[in-house]
Structure formats: C-alpha cells, structure tokens
Design a binder for these strands. Structure first.
Length: 197
DNA sequence: GTAGGGATACACT
DNA sequence: GTGTATCCCTACT
C-alpha cells in the first residue's frame, strides 16, 4: 500500500489545541512483524501543561510525564486501568508540556490483523476508544517516546483526508476541568468512541 | 451499572 | 521502603 507523506516537526511545534484540531483526518501507521495496520484519526483530546488539572503534566515533570515536556512529534504512551495503553502525541516547544490523546481511528489498512488483536469483528469496534486503538495497532509502553516523524519509524503519522465537519465537546473520562471544550471529533463518523457528547 | 487490573504519584514511616 | 488513592478504560451483566 502506498503511504502518504509524513507530517513534519513544524506541524507539532504549535499550540496544542491547534494541533489537536488539525490531527483529525491525518493517518496513523504501524508496522510490525505481524504486518501493517493504519487508521484515520477521527477523535482526539488536547491536554495542556501547568494550566490543565486533567493533564499528567499538571504538577510538572515526573518520570511518566517527562516526555510531554520534551521533543514534539513523539508518542507519549501510558498504561491505564490495569489493562490498556493510551497513545498521545507530544506538542509544543521543548520545555512546554502538551499532548493530544488519540481517542478513535477509522481503520484503513490491516483489518484482519486488527480483528485478531482485538478479538472483535465489526469495524466500528476495532479502534473506537483510546485503549481499543492501541490494542488494534499493537501499541504498548515500549512505544513510549517513539518518533512519529521518521521514515524508518514503525509508528508514524501521515497526511490524510480532512473531515467535512468537526464537532467539539468537553473531554471524557476525566474528573477535573471537565468543562473545557478540548475534545475534537469528525461529526457523523461511525468510528468515534460511543460516549455521550 | 460495575468488576477488573496494574502503574503511578505522593504521603507517610 | 510501604500504604493507598487515583486513573485520559473496556467488556460484560
């Protein structure tokens, strides 16, 4: 399969909310020994730094959140609720924390492999949530820090078809700063996570 | 509606 | 070093 061009550093080196909105429609590509999987980003959430109580970076850098303060265009992967990994994309300049959580993908390649990893058949069940998409793409804590901008990387973000209409809502699954409209999704997509808006 | 699961951060000793 | 509250969730009932 022919792959689109990789997003450059300048794409990530901007305010997090801007990057979050523009990540919609871009494509995430993953290559492993098992094969290729890819999906189009249809739902994201922005997490800021010191100003954002819902962010892992809120209390400054820790061993886990350190990467959010560093080089942009890398993956921040964390382990959650005992069984799932979630993938974020680091934004902003070095020293300023920011990341965009990838919440849902529209599968575009490697359907069989995604189904095998997920143990689910329906396309809507493969990547419709942050834990689900990490599982479908084979993303684990070992991918924490992976550079998404390098051709030789097995995890990359590339160009894609931009959405017709973008929806905005508060973030889900958080207990602090629940009023901020930091969730962006492709309106009408059957592949977004099934949470109330 | 809720069980499950493990890493993380921080308050303590 | 130990205790414990929390968590950017999923799958099942």
């Amino acid at each position: 399969m022919r792959k689109p061009g990789i997003l450059p550093r300048s794409f990530y080196h901007r305010p997090t909310l801007e990057v979050a909105r523009e990540l919609l429609g871009k494509t995430l590509w993953r290559e492993t020994e098992e094969g290729l999987t890819a999906g189009r980003i249809v739902e994201v959430e922005a997490y800021l730094g010191q100003d954002d109580p819902a962010s892992h970076a809120y209390r400054g850098p820790t061993p886990r959140s350190r990467i959010m303060f560093e080089d942009c265009g890398r993956a921040y992967v964390y382990f959650s609720y005992g069984s799932h990994c979630c993938m974020n994309v680091v934004t902003e300049r070095h020293g300023t924390a920011g990341a965009v959580l990838l919440r849902a993908l529209e599968p575009i390649a490697g359907f069989a492999l995604m189904r095998r990893r997920r143990g689910r058949d329906r396309r809507e069940d493969l990547c419709s949530g942050p834990g689900k998409l990490a599982q479908a793409m084979g993303i684990t804590l070992r991918d924490n820090g992976a550079d998404l901008k390098l051709t030789r990387s097995t995890l990359t973000i590339r160009e894609g078809r931009i959405p017709l209409e973008i929806g905005i809502s508060p973030r889900v699954g958080i207990s602090k700063a629940t009023d901020r409209p930091f969730r962006f999704f492709e309106r009408g997509s059957p592949y977004v996570s099934r949470v109330r808006v």
